[in-house]
């Protein structure tokens, strides 16, 4: 019994020092790390592409065990902004060693937080992720351009909207045995290639196009063990 208690105690001490889970969002294009405003590095559908802005909200972060039970939760929202590298890394603290078999999060801000008034922190409306003419957060913002023979072809996707039937927040479920260092790959090539050609290249308000594109974001997230 004494030994058992000592073991538990050591475990707790061990975790107080070590049980920190880091979650890093790594954005890639053509299988390489994405740099903003870099010309000549990436192509999509045979067109050279430059990404100038990528920001998205993640919230309701859950670590789950092999029974899919939530063992650790962070209910706050985080704005991942590629222009601010420190924003792409999140931390979850735990008092005990956890066996983690999956990671869940919401991509975007859910409806209750869209209707509950003015927030500060990562939900501050001055961060370029809040519409002013209409209440609501932009969940995912991607801007850039293709260089074509006829000049630059810009695209701006400001995807959001919390009203049914055009709600855009998505739940991302990633199942894999993972370590304390969780790396989420965000594959923009997958997204850009999946956008139907007939859609406008500027989608900046809620509606059916925003909903459709938001659903195309689900498969671009994957887990990688490091």
């Amino acid at each position: 019994m004494k030994n058992f208690l000592i073991t538990i105690g050591l475990c707790l001490l061990h975790c107080l020092a070590n049980c920190q889970y880091t979650i890093e969002f790594k954005t890639i294009l053509n299988g390489q790390k994405l740099f903003l405003d870099s010309a000549g590095l990436y192509t999509v559908n045979s067109n050279e592409v430059v990404i100038s802005n990528l920001k998205f909200y993640v919230g309701a972060l859950h670590l789950v065990n092999h029974k899919k039970q939530k063992v650790k939760t962070d209910s706050s929202y985080h704005l991942i902004d590629l222009a601010k590298p420190e924003s792409t890394k999140l931390r979850l603290e735990s008092q005990e060693e956890l066996l983690i078999n999956g990671f869940r999060f919401k991509l975007g801000v859910d409806s209750i937080n869209n209707v509950s008034g003015a927030y500060g922190g990562d939900l501050d409306p001055t961060l370029g992720m809040y519409w002013t003419w209409q209440s609501g957060y932009i969940n995912f913002k991607l801007e850039g351009f293709y260089t074509t023979e006829n000049g630059n072809r810009e695209f701006q996707y400001h995807l959001g909207g919390y009203l049914n039937p055009f709600e855009t927040v998505q739940e991302i479920r990633l199942d894999i045995l993972i370590s304390k260092k969780i790396v989420i790959i965000v594959d923009l090539e997958k997204f850009l290639k999946s956008i139907p050609a007939e859609l406008p290249t500027k989608i900046m308000s809620p509606g059916k196009n925003a909903k459709l594109l938001s659903e195309l974001l689900i498969p671009i997230f994957s887990l990688k063990n490091e």
Binding site: N114, V115, S116, G117, A118, P125, T126, Y130, T132, W133, Q134, S135, G136
Partner: peptide, 25 residues
Amino acid sequence: GAVNNIEVQALAPISHASEMGNDLI
């Protein structure tokens, strides 16, 4: 009904180009 809470209402007129033509930044 574009604005869903009185706390965020002022963002609309402050930012509108034909109203107060400003932005919070």
